[in-house]
């Protein structure tokens, strides 16, 4: 059979392949909340943006997804890196963000500062990418909800009061935000559907 294209299929480009792998890691982290899922190797990004957050962002960003950067990350080198690599629309407040990036849990705005979605369109909520110092060693919390067979125990290093805020976020279900936590090596997904036991 003759086809219009004679060359064999181009394998996916390196960037496309990386985006796909990162997406599968994200999908797994949110499908099985509480489990640590390891990220693939990711190229470096301009400091203070870590490769993990950069990789997650580049895999998800385009012009439709308003991005809010925590003030610590909102600097010209990072803005130009993201603008050069992806189509980005920066937004000024967490409320407008489809994606929000916070590199230090101490700088995390109150969870209700982000967009919780609308009753008929809960998917319009913010997804928060949160860098934590470690995914273990913090206060242990047992989680329950979709994607968890019985309970899942997580202990990320998050500030005091985070889990109370999370309980309020979960109580608004199906509204609410979703959080992806990373320590740079692994991911833990925290969808709004999951609550503290």
């Amino acid at each position: 059979m003759t086809t219009a294209f004679s060359s064999p299929a181009a394998p996916p480009s390196e960037a496309a392949q990386r985006d796909q792998r990162v997406f599968r890691v994200l999908l797994r982290a949110l499908s099985y909340p509480g489990r640590v899922v390891l990220l693939p190797a990711l190229p470096s990004a301009p400091a203070p943006l870590c490769p993990a957050l950069a990789g997650l962002l580049l895999g998800l960003l385009d012009l439709e997804a308003g991005l809010w950067l925590t003030p610590a990350l909102d600097c010209p080198p990072i803005r130009s890196f993201l603008t050069y690599r992806a189509a980005v629309q920066f937004v000024a407040t967490p409320r407008e963000a489809v994606l929000a990036v916070v590199d230090d849990p101490a700088g995390l705005p109150p969870l209700d500062a982000f967009h919780p979605g609308e009753p008929a369109c809960p998917e319009r909520s913010t997804t928060v990418l949160l860098r934590v110092p470690a995914l273990a060693g913090g206060p242990a919390v047992a989680l329950r909800g979709p994607g968890i067979e019985a309970t899942a125990t997580v202990a990320p290093r998050v500030p005091y009061g985070f889990w109370d805020q999370w309980a309020r976020n979960h109580a608004r279900y199906p509204l609410g935000i979703d959080i992806i936590m990373t320590d740079g090596v692994g991911l833990v997904g925290l969808p709004r559907s999951v609550g503290r036991e």
Partner: peptide, 12 residues
């Protein structure tokens, strides 16, 4: 775009 929709779908 589809991937972002899928991630939201998994969360809700």
């Amino acid at each position: 775009m589809v991937r972002r929709a899928i991630l939201k779908a998994v969360c809700i």
